[in-house]
Nucleic acid binder design. Structure first.
Length: 505
RNA sequence: GUCUUGUUAGCUCAGCUGGUAGAGCACGUCACUUUUAAUGAUGUGGCCGAUGGUUCGAAUCCAUCACAGGACACCA
């Protein structure tokens, strides 16, 4: 049923024809001795040679056929491996008797993975190629590839069948190579600073560390529900209590929320915690981190992103309340008065949920009038305590916390603060969150008394930060949808699959 | 969750105010030993996303559903 398509049938027949003639269409004994990139580099001098060839050299390369131009008794074929694309020249007279006409021309086609041996030469058009003297099919593709020029552009196909997207679109491969580099560099940066990489649970008894709806699963042996973690924060801080002074974790978080261009239900973040430091140290290390990334990725610090130009040499720092007036244009006299803020928001056509406190309303003003205007990297500091349940209060101004968020191109990239380490204060913050939950805020924090107990043994003054890796990669690869930096973004199942599930139930 | 746009051949897309479906690539056959999205000739290929409705007649109009894109809402 799955292979009923006539093109697939045709290709299966070709695979069978090869098999009948003694050629395994899924051969396993690859003899490849170089990659295409290396071949092109090593033989670049052939261009300078008088007869444009060196028959004393011999290489075996492998790859997928992307273009196939048969011209009678000779053919030009473009094959591609992970490192690059190579043109090979296949002729009847350089292969053993009959193979070219009865096998190559009849049964080999675009999409097949082949292995060829031969010597380097340069064509009349000046392209360094491989003159083939041995030819072997490694893998027969029985499904045809998408069209060679336009490739596959349908986003649904690109996300659901990412392998096709990767076969057809070199720039997509590049994006994911960059993503891998970013994660690798991030790991190296923090290791070089003396941070210890740790792994904490993905299944939590309490969904803590952030405000979000969790996914729920069930542990049969224990007979209890578990939550896929929404953040690793509370576990990492337990490790600081335990005496590790600098830890980080790069891993997935899961949030049961809506999906859009910047949200996927599972996403990757780095969180790091640093004892005997404050959020001011985090500002410095964050600047250093970006510098490190740009240097090692060889990116310009005057960075084009869509229609924007971001200056990564221009890190700004501004307190939240101040940003409301200087950037958001909100009158200074209203930013510290609940009723005036509500009136102002209403005047702008924005309705607010009843019962919001001053800090939440200030956050609302920020989201409405400031966030999208922050293009160059900007640390917004001094967050209200009401919307920062895990952050340490400022010693001088107890209504604000020692916290910042980093915004770039109008999007939040990082969230950081000096950690709350007073167990009594932490307990009362949790109680405040419980009260909010009673009032219908279903995303308020859960009480985590085990965590409070951990704090009660004493956590050194610590600063901690989370950075959204997906959004960071979006920036660095100039992508504008999180799906384009996730190899397999979340998709609804096609209706057929839903029906099958229904039948089982 | 709301609004909006889309879904036609393996892929990329046409198809006007309703009259039984079209191109390019790919694929089959033929020709071709220096091509670059090779070329020339010729041919095959479709439940027009699904289900209903209007109509003598629906890819086209209407409704519902499914999936996708975009915007908004929610959310760090």
């Amino acid at each position: 049923m799955i292979f009923e398509n006539k093109y697939i049938q045709q290709r299966i027949e070709k695979a069978n024809a090869l098999k009948d003639a003694g050629y395994n269409p899924y051969a396993n004994d690859s003899q490849r001795n170089t990659t295409i990139e290396k071949y092109l580099n090593v033989n670049s001098d052939v261009v300078e040679m008088e007869n444009k060839r060196d028959e004393n050299r011999h290489y075996i390369v492998s790859g997928r056929i992307k273009f196939l131009r048969i011209m009678g008794k000779a053919s030009f074929v473009k094959i591609e491996d992970e490192s690059g694309m190579l043109q090979i020249y296949v002729t009847r007279d350089n292969l053993h008797e009959g193979f070219y006409n009865t096998m190559f021309k009849k049964n080999i086609e675009v999409g097949d993975i082949i292995e060829v041996g031969g010597f380097p030469f340069v064509t009349g058009q000046g392209e360094l190629s491989l003159h083939v003297d041995s030819f072997k099919l490694l893998t027969k593709a029985i499904s045809p590839l998408p069209e060679k020029f336009h490739g596959v552009t349908d986003k649904e196909i690109r996300y659901r069948k990412r392998y096709l997207d990767l076969i057809m679109n070199a720039d997509v491969r590049k994006t994911f190579q960059t993503r891998s580099r970013v994660i690798s560099l991030t790991r190296r940066f923090f290791e070089d600073k003396g941070f210890l990489e740790v792994e904490t649970p993905m299944m939590h008894p309490i969904a803590g560390g952030a405000n979000a709806k969790p996914f729920v699963t069930h542990h049969n042996a224990l007979g209890v529900d578990r939550y896929l973690r929404i953040a690793p924060e509370l576990y990492l801080k337990r490790l600081i209590v335990g005496g590790f002074e600098a830890v980080f974790e790069i891993n997935r978080n899961f949030r049961n929320e809506g999906m859009d261009a910047t949200h996927n239900p599972e996403f990757t973040s780095i969180e790091f915690y640093w004892a005997y430091k404050t959020y001011k140290d985090l500002i410095e290390i964050t600047k250093e981190y970006f510098q490190y990334l740009f240097e090692h990725l060889d990116l310009p610090t005057l960075f084009p992103y869509g229609d924007l130009e971001i200056n990564f040499d221009n890190f700004q720092e501004i307190p939240l309340i101040k940003s409301l007036t200087t950037i958001g244009g909100v009158p200074a006299d209203i930013t510290k008065d609940k009723e005036k803020i509500i009136a102002y928001l209403n005047e702008k056509g924005i309705t607010v949920k009843p019962g919001m406190n001053l800090g939440q309303l200030q956050g609302e003003l920020f989201d409405e009038f400031v966030e999208e205007k922050l293009i160059d990297p900007t640390f917004i500091t001094e967050y209200p305590v009401e919307i920062s349940p895990l952050a340490r209060r400022s010693d001088e101004h107890p209504e604000i916390t020692e916290r910042f968020e980093l915004f770039i191109a109008g999007r939040e990239i990082a969230n950081a603060f000096s950690e709350l380490n007073d167990p009594i204060d932490q307990l009362s913050r949790f109680e405040g969150q419980m009260a909010a939950k009673e009032n219908g805020d279903d995303e308020a924090h859960e009480m985590d008394s085990d965590f409070v107990e951990a704090l009660s043994y004493g956590m050194a003054p610590t600063a901690g930060q989370g950075i959204g890796i997906d959004r960071l990669v979006m920036l660095l690869t100039n992508e504008h949808s999180i799906r384009d930096v996730l190899l397999f973004p979340a998709m609804k199942p096609v209706s057929q699959e839903i029906n099958e599930e229904d039948e089982e139930n």
